Simulated assay, not measured.
Amino acid sequence: MTPEGDLPEKGKKRRKLRRLELLRFHPGDSFLHRLDPRTKLLALIFMSIVALVFSSLPVLVLAFLFELVLAFNSGIMNRFLRALTLVSPIFILVIVLDSFFSKVSGGPVWFSAQVGFLHPEVTQAGVIFATAMGFRLLVLVGISFLFLMTTSHDDFTRSLRGMRIPPTLTFSLRYALQSTTSLTDDTRQIMDAQRSRGLELDRGNFIRNRDKLAALFIPVTVSLLKRSKHTADAMQARGFRQSASHSCYKSQTFGKPDVLMAILLAAFILILIVVSRVFPF
């Protein structure tokens, strides 16, 4: 019989795994899914630069709203919002710390104290700056989540090959992305198998379970070594790197959605520049 105290812990583990599944790619036919991965990579770089260069709250809010529009248009709004909850503790921590220890001060002082050598102070300008830093985090994380949710590993690798990146580098990146998913699945299966044998991995903390972790790490390591050997044998059997030229049976091409996305990004940066001039805070 399973103790009733274990049920909440197992439920938390299952919910955590389901939340991590939100970041996986799911095929679709939306505007974002039809974009060339190189275009989505450009959008990822563009939005990251916007988040790091601008510190104005209205600009960062508009950037986040732009990502919400992309998610809604792609039909992944619910998954996108649930995925953002993964970083909600960091979001709250950033706002709280930047509110009490902000490098910007001004306006009414809502709280001030002296705690040893620390001087926490909450001002109107500090709260605005802290909120902007929180939205900066959401913009950076949001565009990365959109890229992961709408881009398959195969399409991304073919796009890199189209950019004349060396085949060894593209294969390594492709294999690393795929191995992350495969290793997660193997670890989950091994944990379920060990639980079925009576190993209680869900009870206690990391220190108390340190002796039990060997029963998890050893099978995972063996599985990883076996998978690496099978991959090496398959590469050798197919003559990887034996020929000078490599080709893909399917190539990625730019289309009308990519041109439209480039126009949207160009127009969006002009809007952000105007907003930053009008609302500099």
Rank of each mutant, 00 (worst) to 15 (best):
G198W: 03
E200H: 15
E200D: 14
R203F: 07
R203I: 04
R203D: 09
R203Y: 10
G204K: 04
G204V: 05
N205R: 07
F206M: 12
I207V: 15
D211L: 14
L213Q: 08
A214G: 12
A214K: 14
A214C: 05
A215P: 01
L216D: 00
I218C: 03
P219W: 02
P219F: 01
P219R: 01
P219V: 01
T221V: 15
V222L: 14
V222P: 02
S223M: 10
L224E: 00
L225C: 05
L225R: 07
R227H: 05
K229Q: 13
H230R: 15
T231A: 11
D233Q: 06
A234G: 01
M235W: 01
M235Q: 01
M235L: 14
M235F: 03
A237N: 04
A237G: 07
A237F: 03
R238F: 05
G239D: 01
F240H: 00
R241N: 07
Q242S: 04
Q242P: 02
S243T: 12
H246V: 13
H246N: 06
S247V: 13
K250Q: 10
S251G: 03
T253M: 08
K256N: 11
V259R: 15
V259G: 09
L260I: 13
L260D: 00
L260G: 03
M261G: 01
L264Y: 08
A267I: 08
A267R: 10
I269T: 14
